[in-house]
Design a protein around this nucleic acid. Structure first.
Lengths: 262, 262
DNA sequence: CATACCATCTTGTCTATACAACTCGCTTGC
DNA sequence: GCAAGCGAGTTGTATAGACAAGATGGTATG
């Protein structure tokens, strides 16, 4: 049974006149909220709406684009989540000037390009060790507590590219470590870092010189240039469960970020 | 004049029974769509909704949270934009397992902490030069064309921290360069990189060793460790207008990223 | 003059509904 | 047996309206 209430018709009267146009739109034309969002985004980045100035109000935009308030709102909140505008209750929506510091580097801009499935992961060592001062501090355990100590090498085309060191709190109830040891593809490796393992964490990226051990593992001279991606993983209750770092040969890796729309 | 239509009342009947509770909610309780989104996000990251599995359907969630479909949709599309779930038309909404490579580094995690207003910017040189091979290729101009050549030093507590080199296409109609030369605060400097200047661009981050010139400018030994932030800015029509790079003393800078909610 | 108040405009949240687009299983007719 | 198609369920887009919450400016009152 189809219910049709003449009072709440969705289709605009124009539809009745623009039959062919409607056909085209059904093909590929983007939804209204997207069209509005990109139009407004263009106006902000091109300076039509100067940085800091007030955008037309919701009702004005409704008139211009001939849509309902909710559709305009949706477009505006998209722009707000992208940082292009900020809304202030009672005052208006204002154009923001994006700055360099808003740029975002996605970690997969590191891995996505050539480090795909063909990467090989070699487990160099997996053992128990006693936490030294630094490890104890990072993991929040007592000095000398037993922790799991892992070292891995990621090869690409049989060339060592990353060297990974990790300390994990030893918990006999959690057999997760076992499955971690058998990872062979890089994707599975990176995918193992989060939701299916630990939901929280923190990463920091720096530039370092390789020490003797990692240099040897990577087949590089000591002191060679590398990126260091340090990671701390935490449980949902915010207790730290793992600490480690990747050393990436600097000439093989770079992070990319795009500015602007698209 | 206040219009009240008994058929479209927004407040739930429960409000009439839970007067005091309603008072509390007015204080600080987050809006429903946020509450739903965080609840669902918790269930995804904690594994209540296993990775790859289907979430309850929209109507089921409506029942559980006692809200209208649109509110559930809003929460779901938030999660989708965060990458926690993906919706498939006609089939359902599925939990995604986030991976390390979804991590995001914001550039302001570099600058926000101690490099605030107190940073000083010193213009080392501003001149016209002829494009060499590399510059011509990056800017898309002919070899030997005149380009603007800038060198800047960013100091913190009178210590050199960044060294900036930039080539800009010379355009007599655009007096932008003049104002660029007078920047003194770091914030204004970074803020000048985008919307009020060029809306598009690309950044890449790598680790490098300092060459003789930059090492001297930064007061470091040649070959010292640095992060290199290379930037290409483009006009709205995608023509390149500027190319340059920042060299950041490695021991002073690191990028941070947080994983998980909050 | 100063202050309290009120109407109005703004953004933001939410409802209830309709329909489009798609998937999937079941039934019906061949 | 098999294919066509129908209907139920699902996500996604859009509507029209109500109300909450905050800002603003003018007006009336002390």
């Amino acid at each position: 049974m189809k219910i049709f209430d003449v009072n709440t018709q969705q289709t605009k009267p124009a539809d009745l006149l623009e039959g062919p146009l409607e056909r085209e739109r059904a093909d590929s034309e983007p939804p209204a909220y997207l069209r509005i969002a990109t139009t407004l985004a263009d106006r902000v980045t091109s300076g039509t709406y100067a940085a800091g100035s007030r955008l037309p109000s919701g009702s004005q935009l409704c008139q211009e684009f001939e849509v309902s308030p909710m559709t305009v709102r949706r477009a505006l909140s998209m722009l707000e989540s992208q940082g292009l505008v900020t809304g202030v209750r009672g005052r208006g929506t204002f154009a923001r000037s994006l700055n360099l510091s808003d740029s975002v580097f996605r970690l997969d801009s590191l891995t996505g390009e050539w480090l795909d499935e063909s990467a090989e992961i070699r487990l160099l060592s997996a053992s128990m060790t006693k936490a030294d001062e630094k490890v104890a501090a990072m993991l929040g355990v007592a000095l000398g507590d037993r922790v799991v100590y892992l070292r891995r090498l990621v090869l690409y085309d049989s060339n060592p590219a990353m060297y990974h060191t990790e300390y994990i709190i030893y918990d006999p109830r959690r057999p997760l470590v076992e499955s971690q040891l058998q990872l062979t593809s890089l994707h599975a490796f990176l995918d193992s870092g989060r939701a299916n393992r630990f939901p929280r964490g923190e990463l920091t990226l720096t530039a370092v010189n390789l020490d003797a051990e990692s240099a040897q593992a990577l087949g590089q001279p000591e002191g060679a240039l590398a990126l260091c991606l340090e990671h701390v993983f935490q449980n949902n209750d915010r207790t730290t469960v793992s600490w480690g770092w990747f050393l990436l040969r600097a000439e093989l890796f770079r992070l990319r970020a795009r500015l602007g729309s698209e």
